[in-house]
Design a protein around this nucleic acid. Structure first.
Lengths: 347, 347
DNA sequence: TTGTATGCGTTATCAG
DNA sequence: CTGATAACGCATACAA
């Protein structure tokens, strides 16, 4: 970066910022004392403390995070790498992180890796260069080894993996059970021809959901039919294509379980285009419980994934790691939400 | 912040980072020369430049942004305040900002204000404390004066307002024309009883869309009926309630124009719950063109708002402001997307 | 063109 | 308990 075309700042000087030193002078103490009071680093006499607090607010002093980071080694900022900042799922998680970090004076530093491992690696580098105190990686694409290596240098929390270490913690949602519950639900409604639209099988969670689907089938004594399994990439278009594929092949099915809500949404459109009603003709169940899914027509039955909670817990965990404690956070179990898109199979 | 419960870092020391000084030594030049080469601040002999570049990569040197910011006054980071980080609309804008900033070595620093003016003010303070080089505010709730005051201290770009200044630039979407086009579309289809679900009238854009609706009606010689205007807050639930309200009052209507896609989605659900078909019984048009709207059943006719472009242009503009140039960016005009949710009125 | 000295605003390490 | 003093890593006048 900054090879040649970096713009040169040509800005009017802004009013001089108030520094810790100015506060010290006004309060009649040394800078170190002010610093100590600010950080609670040591016990200080009440008299001086009062004077400093007083001076701080009359001057409107705000410590410079850059200087703090340089001198103290801690920046009070947490790097957060997501795959797609513009995804409804991540949005909720990011908000959870924000909400957890804000009250304790930490700031998140968001970056997107776009499902690209090398971009993800670059994110980690940039974040480390920025001297964040810890990193949260949401649904990493990097190898376990790469993540462990990163955790060698600073505290790391990841989601969607099962990793532990001195400075490493992970939060994993039970995708298998979630998919199991979803499929069981459809089976309980009398469906036996249940199509499955898979997620990108490169993701562990996608194959776990696939396993859950098959486990439920097996437990119910329903023969597995590979014709009913459609490949998908977790995007709406996959659901749409899957349905068209199913129908063009004249494959019989009375229900669809999509590995995520986005594909379920695409599937719903596909069914609509083919004149099939949900849930009268085909029952539909998704996975994730996106904020928009409750407003689908009909509202989508799905497995609730606690994205917001995930964010909060991840943030709380990284804070614990930084403090030197082993996190113990655990995600709530999958929860089936039955809404309007699933109904009993017609006899 | 940091009154008493700030966790004390208890971390193992990480391997010592490589500094500019080390590069200088290896290359056999002075630190200042390394700095100059890095920033293109002055002309340097090719021999030394080569040596420095060489040393830089063998050492894997990465400049410390904190030190750079402290010493140079520029942090190469841009503060971005959004109202809701977990909103499909903002998501796209944020990605646009990321994409524009990344190639030139700037990093965005995202914060959410949750539609709360005082939270927004706090965001601005935090960002300034972090010494960002400029700030982008997406759809501010703060007064024009407050924003202008902020622009006194550093470059500011806002969206959804009409503000200009030495260090201030704004990007405004033509909401009026957008709403006009949407309503005209419905009128052209033969509808005359067109309900309007308004956005939060505290937002300028909401009232502009309202005006657009009325202007189209007037131009077509259709009498305005206040009964057909429903208050909303831009959330799905508003659309749902609006439809229930309309129906419970036995108000006649054959089309609905919702001031945003989220409310249109809620309205679609309301119609569905009342056994009304879209577009057979009621035509529906939204505003924004959220990524999900094309996958609604039926796909939603709407006014495309270039969120991603907005982000890119805002980022490009703040960069120009920082460089001392007056930005000239302009948003593309509103574009009507006719999809499956709108159809000719039944005779 | 290049090196030296100084400062950016804090925290941390010493004495006292 | 408190105050000097030295880093932190880099940029920038200033001098050469």
């Amino acid at each position: 970066m900054n090879k040649n075309n970096m713009p040169t700042a040509v800005r009017a000087p802004t009013k001089a910022p108030v520094t810790l030193e100015m506060v010290a002078k006004l309060a009649g103490v040394s800078p170190s004392t002010v610093s100590r009071i600010l950080n609670g680093t040591a016990v200080v006499s009440d008299a001086k403390r009062l004077a400093v607090v007083e001076a701080t607010k009359t001057l409107g002093f705000v410590p410079n995070p850059l200087a703090r980071g340089l001198a103290g080694g801690r920046t009070f900022s947490i790097g957060v790498v997501t795959q797609a900042i513009d995804s409804p799922f991540y949005g909720a998680a990011l908000r959870g992180i924000e909400d957890e970090l804000d009250p304790v004076g930490y700031s998140p530093l968001f970056m997107s890796a776009h499902w690209n491992p090398s971009a993800e690696a670059r994110c980690l580098e940039v974040l480390r260069a920025r001297r964040v105190d810890g990193i949260v990686v949401l649904m990493p694409r990097l190898s376990d080894e790469a993540l462990q290596a990163c955790a060698q240098a600073l505290p790391v929390v990841v989601t969607g993996r099962d990793l532990r270490g001195e400075q490493l913690f992970s939060l994993k949602f039970d995708n298998f059970t979630g998919a199991l519950r979803a499929t069981e639900h459809l089976i309980a409604l009398g469906h036996t021809r249940i199509a499955f639209i898979s997620g990108d099988e490169e993701h562990p969670d996608a194959s776990e959901r696939h396993r859950g689907y098959r486990a439920a089938l097996q437990a119910a004594g329903i023969a597995f039919d590979p014709e009913l399994v459609l490949p998908g990439k977790y995007h709406e278009i996959s659901g749409l294509e899957a349905v068209h594929h199913l129908i063009s092949r004249k494959c019989k099915f009375t229900a669809i379980f999509a590995a995520n809500d986005q594909m379920a949404s695409g599937a719903a459109l596909g069914l609509f285009q083919n004149g099939l009603q949900v849930p009268e003709d085909v029952s539909l169940v998704g996975f994730d419980d996106l904020p928009t899914s409750v407003y689908a027509t009909p509202p989508l039955s799905t497995i609730h994934q606690p994205a917001y909670e995930l964010g909060r817990l991840a943030a709380a965990s990284i804070l614990q790691l930084i403090a030197g404690t082993q996190p113990t956070a655990e995600l709530p179990p999958p929860e089936l939400l039955v809404r309007g898109s699933s109904a009993p199979a017609r006899p």
